[in-house]
Write a protein that binds this DNA or RNA. Sequence first.
DNA 1: TTGATTAAGATGTATATACAAGTTTAGGAG
DNA 2: CTCCTAAACTTGTATATACATCTTAATCAA
Lengths: 239, 239
Amino acid sequence: MKINKYKHIYEELAAKMKDGIFQPGELIPSENELAQQYETSRETIRKALTLLSQNGYIQKLRGKGSVVLDTSRAIFPVSGLVSFKELAEQMKGPVTTRVEEFGLIKPEPFLQHQLQCNAKDDTWKVTRTRAFDDERVILDKDFLLKKFIPDLTEEICKDSIYSYIEQELGLTISFAKKEIVVESCTEEDKQYLDLNGFLHVVVVKNYVYLDDASLFQYTESRHRLDKFRFVDFARRQTT
Amino acid sequence: MKINKYKHIYEELAAKMKDGIFQPGELIPSENELAQQYETSRETIRKALTLLSQNGYIQKLRGKGSVVLDTSRAIFPVSGLVSFKELAEQMKGPVTTRVEEFGLIKPEPFLQHQLQCNAKDDTWKVTRTRAFDDERVILDKDFLLKKFIPDLTEEICKDSIYSYIEQELGLTISFAKKEIVVESCTEEDKQYLDLNGFLHVVVVKNYVYLDDASLFQYTESRHRLDKFRFVDFARRQTT
DNA sequence: TTGATTAAGATGTATATACAAGTTTAGGAG
DNA sequence: CTCCTAAACTTGTATATACATCTTAATCAA
């Protein structure tokens, strides 16, 4: 057991809610009770409960306890950072990824700005289409800085770039800034997607950072309008 | 000074980053230094820094310190819970709200499901349009349970419902679940919005909860495609 | 019965200490 | 000069204690 104690407790309690052992609306045991059960201090329990609260599992009620929230509605949390592979695993029906373009480029000014790099920073460009039920509905354009990922292959892109980066390279993806807008279809969209007459796409622009706060990837994920869905859990800004 | 110590420190440090006193890329003083400066314990400092980290102000680097992130790109954080009024204050140009419909209704089955209530729960229905530069680009449909908000007036809706709930009623809005999808325009959309020929709208469905975890509001915010923008900061899921 | 008071138990905040683990720097051995 | 080690400093985790604040239930008085 090398995992942290409080993360372990978090996992265990979260599992109990997913499995329905703790039902929505119920109170979970108090912090002191949990501290006894897990033979730990109250502060450690509180760290676990804080995580549960942040991720929408519980609501803490001062003087009363912690009530279990209904997490069944949020089918998949695109909030947080979820890769396409993780997302695909939760979908029913056949899901396929196809690599349309793959290569090393020199970033033009727009990309230099997005990736905060200069013209001589080699950059991987990967274009992939994602199909559900044989309909190509997502076009993913990835740009990754070579200085962080020296060796990338088409083979890796067919699977999951994130797995490769985290498992093989040992890098840690830490946070991302996301922007969602709607744009008119480009020629590229028309070429690679089954647009069914839609004139616009939802564009998710992702700026992905490693745990040392260095920006290493810019991604544009272009979704056909009718297949786009974004779910979020947001706590009120701590002000 | 009745505010919490760690929240106060959070505010002060966040302000220093907004004002550029702490520049992106720089390290802020160490936890021990800050503890001395603020004449408090390291744990209290850590709580403040945790908030800063969660809200995208800093990245903590073990063994090194906390580096300031660039927050200039995220112009307005729609993430978290931001009301239209707060959002409007950050826009340039004239912004107006108009109440199109206002009244008390009995919820039909769809609404009963959304609000998790039954047919006899009186519900306020408020329909408002939001205009930027005299173009009506957002249609907000609010449904609020009367048992939480007994007295609502058209006057209040012209201003800000949230301010009324929090300041006048003393209720605390705590968290929300959000879903973003794209839908075809309805007759209502065509009636109330200046659609400029767009056939779809971006629909943000909001389920808003009070701090006792009771659902009290369901809102549909319908945006003209070209005026929609959503910005998010997401840390990788703590797994 | 009703109402106010009290006590018990819950979470929230603040402080203190100890050690683990990662980074950097200084200094010494070769 | 180069390389390695150790020390100093950083953040991360775990524990302990004290008190504040809020909720609920029990108790007591009118």
